[in-house]
């Protein structure tokens, strides 16, 4: 322990203050001077360790007695809580015990350890350089020599990983047919069905102020890629008073007596947009709060989305069921680089 406790008194004033050194006076703890206090501390530590043992017993008992399974919510809650509290005691007992021990009975005055500069000594550095030089000489590839050998090695090393990476990455993306984004299950004549049970929807079912969450008829019977198709095809079917609906130019025959259908997938980053406010005809996305005005072509009125929701053109067939007249006229969901190509 090196402490240079130099006191500067009188004489010339220094440029800077001097380090007074590690405080020499160590204030003793109660346990340092009073054996009774030390014994008390020991008992406290032992009690904490004892608490831990008790916690372990509780945790094991909770496991043995746990009554879970079935529809027993209370049983799950009780066993989780009891077992967890047992574990808590088992851990905190050891933890606080060990720390209390360290704080009261172990050394508490500072020691000093010297640091060494991290930089290697000059001899070591010179030695390293020499060793590398010698090694390079032994390999025959000193500076400026055997360029062909070095070049070919570097090239081989640089491209060799491709032998693993190309097949590996090549397989990751399935068929890489990214044009699938463009199309959904909707096409002319596909009936609109209720999500999730798949029952069909008649125009007369959709009263003013109603919202139907819609999937294409036939989705539930798909053998493969049901979720992928659903992820693109979900639609919201909304009816408002025809007076409130501003039909968009060029889309006069896309709606039916105040009934409109819009893609449910947000044009921002693809959350299902689903909060329909009946009075304002606004559709809010709960993820990032893009707000679309259903009465006005589902155009964005607030939030981080730019584009209106794609509209699904609909009609009513002979039996009164609502059908799609076509697929969406643009890719649904978030923007991507080649979406307009």
């Amino acid at each position: 322990m090196s402490t240079d406790n130099v006191n500067h008194q009188g004489g010339a004033v220094d440029e800077e203050f001097t380090d007074p050194g590690v405080p020499a006076d160590h204030r003793p703890r109660r346990a340092d001077v009073d054996p009774k206090a030390a014994n008390r501390a020991e008992r406290q530590v032992a009690a904490m360790f004892g608490l831990s043992v008790l916690g372990t017993v509780i945790a094991i008992a909770a496991y043995v007695m746990s009554d879970v399974g079935g529809d027993n919510i209370a049983g799950v809650q009780n066993s989780t809580m009891l077992m967890g509290l047992g574990l808590f005691l088992a851990m905190i007992g050891i933890g606080t015990g060990a720390i209390h021990w360290a704080k009261t009975l172990m050394r508490d005055h500072d020691m000093v350890e010297e640091r060494h500069e991290l930089r290697s000594s000059d001899e070591a550095r010179a030695g390293a350089v020499d060793n590398l030089k010698e090694g390079a000489k032994d390999s025959g590839i000193g500076v400026g020599r055997r360029g062909l050998l070095k070049g070919s090695l570097v090239t081989a090393l640089a491209i060799a990983p491709l032998s693993v990476l190309v097949p590996a990455i090549g397989n990751l993306g399935g068929d890489w047919n990214v044009s699938k984004f463009r199309h959904t299950m909707w096409k002319q004549g596909v009936r609109l069905a209720k999500d999730p049970d798949g029952s069909l929807i008649k125009a007369s079912d959709v009263t003013i102020g109603s919202v139907f969450h819609v999937i294409p008829d036939g989705l539930t019977e798909l053998e493969h890629h049901q979720l992928e198709e659903k992820a693109k095809a979900v639609v919201l079917l909304i009816r408002m008073s025809p007076d409130d609906l501003n039909v968009q130019p060029g889309r006069e025959d896309w709606s039916f007596d105040g009934i409109v259908a819009y893609s449910k997938i947000c044009t921002h980053v693809g959350c299902p947009v689903a909060l329909y406010e009946q009075q304002t005809h606004h559709l809010l996305c709960p993820c990032h709060q893009s707000t679309f005005d259903v009465a006005n072509g589902a155009k964005v009125v607030f939030g981080p989305a730019k584009r209106a929701l794609p509209q699904l053109p609909i009609a009513v067939d002979d039996e009164g069921y609502i059908i799609a007249k076509d697929d969406f006229n643009e890719p649904i969901g978030p923007s991507y680089w080649e979406r307009l190509k």
Binding site: K194, S204, G209, S210, V211, Q279
Partner: peptide, 13 residues
């Protein structure tokens, strides 16, 4: 009945 902002969920829906 679909009060205030809430849409209507009629018996067909």
């Amino acid at each position: 009945v679909g009060p205030q902002s809430m849409p209507v969920f009629n018996d067909a829906n």
